[in-house]
Simulated assay, not measured.
Amino acid sequence: MEAMFRAVGIAPEAAFAILLGAAVFASMLAVLLPGMKKNTLKTRMKAVALEREEIRARERARLSREDKGGRASLRNVEEYGFAAKVVDALNLRKALVDEKTTAKLKIAGYRNSRHLTLFLFARASLALAFLTIACFYIYGLGVLENQIFSVKLLIVAGVAYLGFYLPVMVVNNAAQKRQKSVQLAWPDALDLMLICVEAGNSVEAAFRRVSEEIGVQSIPLAEELVLTCAELSYLPDRKAAYDNLAQRTGLEGVKAVTTALIQAERYGTPLGSALRTMAQENRDMRMNAAEKKAASLPPKLTVPMIVFFLPVLFAVILGPAIINIFGVM
C-alpha cells in the first residue's frame, strides 16, 4: 500500500490524513443529516389545515347567504398576480382546461384554483421560453445551418411543444406517485378504520384518527382523510364528501369503499362488515399488482441478459481456449 502511494506521488502520511478526514466527514454527515431533514408530514398537514379552514369559511359564507335570502353578494378575494393576469389575457382557461385536466390536478394534490392558474401559466411561459431558446440556437448561432428551412422549423416547433407539454408530464408523474402511495397504504387504513368503527367511534372520528396514524406510511392518504373529515363536518351532503375523496384519489379501490360508505349510511347496513370486506379486497388487489409486476420481470430481463451478460459469459468460457489456440499457432 505504501509503495502504491509513493508511485502516484502521495506520501503515506498525507494519504492517511485524507482518508481519516473523509471518514470523519462521512460520520458527521451520518449523524447530522437525519436532524437536518425537514418534517414533511408537519408541513403538509399545515397546508391541509389551511385548506380545511377555507372549506369552513366557504360553507359559513354560503349558510349566511342562504339565511339572507340570497340577496347578499359573496366575493371571493383571491390573489391576482402576474400569472393570473396572463392566463386571463390569453383566455387559457377556456382553451386548455377541461374536466380531465382538473381531475388530474386534484389527483396530483393541486386542488386550489391558484394551482390551476400556475399550471396554465407554466405551460404558456415554458412554451415561449423553449421557442426563444430554439430560435436563438438555430437561427441566431447558426446551429443546423446545413439543414433546410422546413427541418429547422419542425425542430423549433417540436422544442416549443416540449415546453408546452412539460408541465403535463410533471403533473402526471406527481399523480402517479401520489396514487401509488395511497394504493399501498389504503388497505392498512381500512383496517385501522374498521378498528375505530368497531370500537364505537363515528365515521368522522375514525377518519381523523386514521389520518393521524397513517401519515407515517403515506402522507398523501393522510391529507385526503383529513380533507374528507373536514368535508363531512361542513358540507351539507355527506355523499359529496365521499365522492370528492374518490375523485381526488382516482383509484377504483377507494371509489368502491366510498360507494359502500354511502350505501351504509343510506340504508343502515353494518359498516364494520363492509369495511372488513373492502379491506380484504384492496389487499388482494395490492397482492395481484405485486404478482403482475413480478411476472413481467422475466421478459424485461431478457434484453439486458443478452446484451450484457452473454458476451461476458462467452468471453470467460471461450477466452482461455482462444488464447491456447493462438499460443499453439
Score class of each variant (00 low, 15 high):
Ala206Asn: 04
Val171Ile: 11
Leu32Tyr: 07
Leu105Met: 01
Ala15Asn: 09
Ala160Gln: 06
Glu145Leu: 08
Ala127Cys: 08
Pro220Cys: 06
Gly253Met: 01
Met305His: 02
Ser73Phe: 04
Leu41Asn: 05
Leu301Gln: 01
Phe326Leu: 05
Thr258Ile: 08
Arg71Gln: 10
Ser273Gln: 09
Arg178Tyr: 15
Ala30Gly: 08
Met278Trp: 03
Leu153Thr: 13
Met278Ser: 09
Ala222Phe: 13
Phe326Lys: 02
Glu224Thr: 07
Arg209His: 09
Gln217Glu: 03
Leu194Thr: 12
Gly109Trp: 10
Met278Cys: 07
Ala264Asn: 06
Leu96His: 13
Ser218Arg: 03
Ala174Pro: 13
Ile323Pro: 01
Leu120Glu: 03
Leu141Trp: 02
Gly109Cys: 10
Lys255Tyr: 06
Ala72Asp: 13
Ala89Trp: 15
Asp284His: 00
Glu145Val: 06
Lys239Asn: 09
Met278His: 06
Arg93Cys: 03
Asp243Lys: 04
Thr269Ile: 12
Asp67Cys: 09
Thr259Ser: 12
Ser125Cys: 06
Ile138Thr: 05
Leu271Ala: 03
Val77Leu: 14
Ala17Met: 08
Phe326Thr: 04
Arg178Leu: 14
Leu105Pro: 00
Ser181Ile: 05
Arg71Thr: 12
Leu245Trp: 08
Gln147Phe: 15
Ala83Phe: 09
Thr228Trp: 10
Glu145Gly: 11
Glu291Asp: 10
Gln147Ser: 15
Leu120Gly: 03
Lys177Tyr: 07
Ile262Cys: 07
Ala160Pro: 05
Gly163Val: 02
Leu192Ile: 07
Ala134His: 03
Ala315Val: 03
Glu99Ile: 08
Leu141His: 05
Val170Gly: 03
Gly215Glu: 09
Met36Asn: 10
Ile18Met: 13
Arg283Val: 01
Leu153Met: 15
Leu166Pro: 15
Phe149Cys: 07
Leu271Thr: 04
Met285His: 08
Tyr267Arg: 09
Ala189Tyr: 00
Gln147Val: 15
Glu99Pro: 08
Val197Phe: 02
Leu19Ile: 13
Asn244His: 12
His115Ala: 04
Ala230Ile: 06
Leu245Tyr: 11
Glu2Gln: 07
Arg6His: 07
Tyr242Thr: 06
Val226Gln: 14
Met329Thr: 06
Ile107Gly: 05
Phe5Ile: 05
Thr258Trp: 03
